[in-house]
Design a protein around this nucleic acid. Structure first.
Lengths: 321, 321
DNA sequence: TGGACAAATTGAACTAGTACACTCTTGGCG
DNA sequence: CGCCAAGAGTGTACTAGTTCAATTTGTCCA
């Protein structure tokens, strides 16, 4: 269907007008994919260059946004009122959702949401992609592997708590503060400790920020840098392993409640048998009660360690005042 | 080759004698598979009933052990000395090895060997199976999943160090002893800390034995059981996280030396950039030197923690003497 | 006007872990 | 001798992570 060549208006403007109308009426909604340049050229029977001009005009109007290789989508803020029914949020996140430019932040947030609710194992590339309404392979544009995905999830999460600039008075209060912040984090994201045991800490900027904060908290105590680093790492370790216990606890509970795999059932039985076999008389008296108080475990480890560190600090102060 | 029928001795006793000789001379070694009843019948040209009597006689002698469906193997404790040449270890482990009932121990040892040399990731079911000369599925007769394999590997390894029955004098010496034993273990098996972060500690008997030992070491200090458990777990945590750092260190080194994946190269660069970006002035001054002294890290964490614990013990002794 | 090009995306295919069902071998029994 | 039950090993198939080679897209140049 060739455009009418009678009018003084050049053909590409006609096409622009037509598409603009479709956008403004809501026929094409924000986030929807535009027809590609080649499709326009073919559909309207014009040259590719003409179609290119159409695109350029629409882009200049701010109606659409274009990314090389990825296609062109209708901009989010075209100013027109939300047209015909159906709130957008409901339609996001599902397989049939409108094609929307995928960004890393979104990927990470979705992955974290899945991990929070269903555990880290539930975060498969395919599952994540389905949740975002894209093909599994598309994810590899944003993360180079699943390991990196986990790393970035960790980074994202470690960015959550804000660390007060000067912090409270005294090194002990400061160390307790950051430890508790991290503990909180692990509570919220049960997959975190396990993830941390995979990744290289050096590649997670926000984790480094925590370490840096801790190092600063140890400033002015007259300690060697080596000592300070060791202190920071040890503290970190205490939090994470208590958190790991917590994660195991919770996971075990959930399993008991839901799946009841015969495998896990067997394992539980074996564990019980072992406990009451007489090989572990001391262990047998406590398991199941005190152990499950992971919060207490965390506080205990922290207190002991800080006491020991306090002794070191005093020592240092005495020998080199 | 029919047996001489001249002698008054019934044929099945002759066969028994012959096989017994082969066992005693070491031609058939403990653990080796006996010929099956049918094989005996065919080879010696006798009826199956006769062969069955042979089996029964040998079984009664305690020379062999029989399991229905699984075949008959030479018993472990036949009392004879290790005979003729060729150390067994050399003949194990290869595809052409003599058909030997695959047992769990063997599977675990092979898996541990692979993990020690090439890392835990190299232990795939297929690889392990190939190493043992069996099909991948055969492994599932002995472990129900890869997770269980790792668990049992961990158990096996934790069984290595022997824990002295009374141990040295004083709680501190005892706690240091067991911590160092575990530290040694992690040094020998770099995959261990990562494996531990997966598994449920309660399902690993030999790990429980360590905990039990620690609990006993804390006997008589007047501490609540809760406290003792927490102490044991915390100590354990300190060892394992220091070991985890070590594993990461070593792994990073190996990667730099060998593969040099462009991915890891990129990651390294990014880490370096981050370090020197000015966001982490304190961290930047130390990374790469002190951090890599993981042994120092371990000793530091241990010392601090034990100091703190000592304070607690003293306190306890003062308030309730 | 048309074709070359780089970036983004995607589909087919490969390896791993694993479930299920099947075969093969074994000792035992009538 | 032949059948049986048990147990070891295997073949097929499905899901996950990942690679590689196309395919699509907007842009640029002759």
């Amino acid at each position: 269907m060739p455009s009418s060549t009678q009018r003084p208006e050049p053909p590409y403007l006609q096409i622009v007008a037509e598409i603009r109308t479709r956008i403004l009426t809501g026929d094409l909604r924000p986030g929807d994919r535009m027809p590609s340049i080649r499709q326009i050229a073919q559909r309207w029977g014009v040259a590719i260059a003409t179609a290119t001009k159409v695109m350029a005009a629409l882009r200049d109007d701010g109606l659409v946004e274009t990314k090389v290789g990825a296609g062109t989508v209708v901009s989010a803020c075209t100013g027109q009122t939300q047209p015909v029914g159906l709130t957008t949020p409901l339609r996001l996140r599902r397989a049939g959702a409108p094609k929307q430019a995928l960004n890393r932040k979104q990927v990470l947030r979705t992955a974290i949401a899945i991990a929070d609710i269903e555990g880290l194992d539930a975060v498969s590339m395919r599952r994540l992609a389905a949740e975002l309404g894209v093909g599994p392979m598309s994810l590899y544009r944003h993360v180079s592997s699943k390991d990196e995905l986990v790393m970035q999830m960790t980074d994202e999460v470690f960015g959550e708590p804000e660390l007060p600039a000067p912090g409270p008075e005294g090194w002990r209060a400061k160390l307790e503060l950051i430890s508790r912040r991290q503990w909180e984090l692990c509570r919220r994201h049960l997959w975190l400790p396990r993830a941390v045991s995979f990744i290289r800490p050096l590649l997670v900027p926000n984790m480094m920020a925590h370490t840096e904060w801790t190092l600063r908290a140890l400033d002015g105590l007259g300690l060697a840098m080596t000592t300070r680093i060791r202190e920071a790492l040890t503290l970190h370790a205490l939090v994470l392993t208590a958190a790991l216990s917590m994660a195991n606890e919770v996971e075990a509970e959930q399993e008991t409640g839901v799946t009841l795999d015969r495998w896990w059932l067997t394992q539980r039985q074996r564990a019980d048998e072992l406990l009451h076999s007489g090989r572990f008389p001391l262990l047998a008296t406590v398991i199941g009660e005190e152990v499950s108080d992971v919060n207490g475990l965390f506080e205990y480890g922290l207190a002991r360690h800080l006491d020991g560190f306090a002794a070191l600090v005093e020592d240092e102060a005495r020998t080199r005042p």
